[in-house]
Amino acid sequence: MSARDNIFRKLRAASTTTLPAPDAAISAHYASLPRTAKDQLAQEFAEKITAWHAEVHAVPRGAWLDKLKEVLAAKGIATLLYAPATAHGQALEAAGIAGLKPYDRPIDEWKQELFENVDAAITGTRGAIAETGTMIVWPDATEPRLMSLVPPIHIALVDADAVVPTLYDAITQQKWTAGGNTLPTNALLVTGPSKTADIQQTLAYGAHGPKELVVLLLTGEAQ
């Protein structure tokens, strides 16, 4: 008998009756919570993630490159990692941003360079969650997962129209798993820069991941 067989034999020997599924109770619970008005969601997200130590810049959709240039200059960012096959990646190239470094080959070929010689990375997001001030980061083949982790500064583009009230809304409204959708190899929720309180409950930022998180919150053109 294998370990697997033994474990299943023991589990099946116990008397169990399947209880009612919790789905309806979960849905009713989130429906019962007070809702933030739709036009306030981006504002709530910005306030919450700022409290988590992120730097938020609300910018009109057409003007994010200008704001980015300001951020790069202010922080002295010389090398900016980006995903060349994304729409924002192409916009970066077209704008002629200095120090652009494309993530265009497998990590195995340039691991040390990524860890030691990249100042910042810019990525898109799949939206954000107002309740907790959380970004939904959805890495894929064009925009790999290490971009939001290894460089000391992470700059993220968040569309103000893609902010939802709760994580439950994100999963259900964006249909993460419904209708045959499969999750990416690594979906992420990111709420602020990396941190720890493991030494005497004292909060310190930049434990292993980014020390700084900059959010460019893309709003309607008319400001």
Binding site: W52, Y103, R105, P106, I107, E131, T132, G133, T134, D140, A141, P144, R145, L146, T182, L183, P184, T185, N186, A187, L188, L189, V190, T191, G192, P193, S194, K195, A197, G209
Partner: peptide, 24 residues
Amino acid sequence: ATGQAITTYFNVITGPRREGEKDG
């Protein structure tokens, strides 16, 4: 656990590096 509304990272892993992916 720590009185936080959420942690910095919620890491949702659904398999190893897929064909064409550059890391993982």
